[in-house]
């Protein structure tokens, strides 16, 4: 319950117009800080829904695959330049962002992550590594302005953000591949 409240307060805090405006004024902060924090808010609230609807989760998300797929779809949707732009221009899309990221990405992530096998977890991270590298490349080399609301230079900065995150994930994957925990634990 405490975690639920924490997540809810975080969500409301992020939705407050001054906070949202500040974060959305910079492209990379919009995508790499506001959006992940929305997911985290949902992640915190997840337990509440798991307790409330245990049957629903065990029936439809038995091995965690549907949940992680939903997570991937929602995340993928919000990585498109077009959708970010729309969130800033169309109010209903902004509202959809504040609902979809916590409840359709954060909550399923919470339920799925523990259920996934180690390999599946690593595949998920590997998948995001590829997507992030691709998006990074796209944003860095695109000479056209992809969003009405952001400048080309903002796009390039976001691209570098994607690349550095991809590098971090690669380091993690190499670490899990190279270091055998059974030697230490």
């Amino acid at each position: 319950m405490n975690l639920f409240l924490f997540g809810l307060v975080l969500l409301i805090g992020l939705m407050l117009p001054p906070v949202a405006n500040l974060m959305e004024s910079v492209m990379i902060i919009h995508m790499h800080m506001q959006m992940p924090m929305l997911v985290i808010a949902g992640f915190f609230m997840g337990q509440f829904f798991q307790r409330r609807f245990p049957h629903f989760f065990s029936k439809y998300n038995q091995e965690g695959i549907p949940g992680i797929l939903l997570f991937i779809i929602i995340m993928g949707y919000w990585m498109l330049p077009r959708t970010m732009d729309e969130a800033l221009t169309v109010n209903s899309v902004e509202l959809f962002k504040f609902i979809s990221l916590p409840f359709l990405a954060g909550v399923p992530l919470r339920d799925s992550w523990k259920k996934l096998s180690k390999n599946r977890k690593n595949y998920t991270i590997g998948f995001f590594t590829v997507i992030f590298s691709g998006m990074g490349w796209l944003y860095i080399q695109a000479n056209d302005q992809l969003c009405n609301n952001y400048l080309v230079v903002d796009q390039m900065i976001l691209g570098w953000g994607f690349i550095t995150m991809a590098i971090c994930m690669v380091i993690y994957l190499v670490y899990t591949a190279v270091v055998d925990p059974s030697l230490y634990e």
């Binding site: 990379i28 900065i157 570098w160 995150m165 670490y175 634990e185």
Partner: peptide, 27 residues
């Protein structure tokens, strides 16, 4: 004890914090 994870998290925080200002300073 999972130092590998702490290091990756450290790198993530560093990249989140530094990419924007550094890219801005260079570009």
């Amino acid at each position: 004890e999972r130092w590998g994870i702490w290091v990756v998290l450290m790198l993530l925080v560093v990249s989140m914090a530094y990419v924007l200002p550094i890219a801005d300073m260079i570009m």
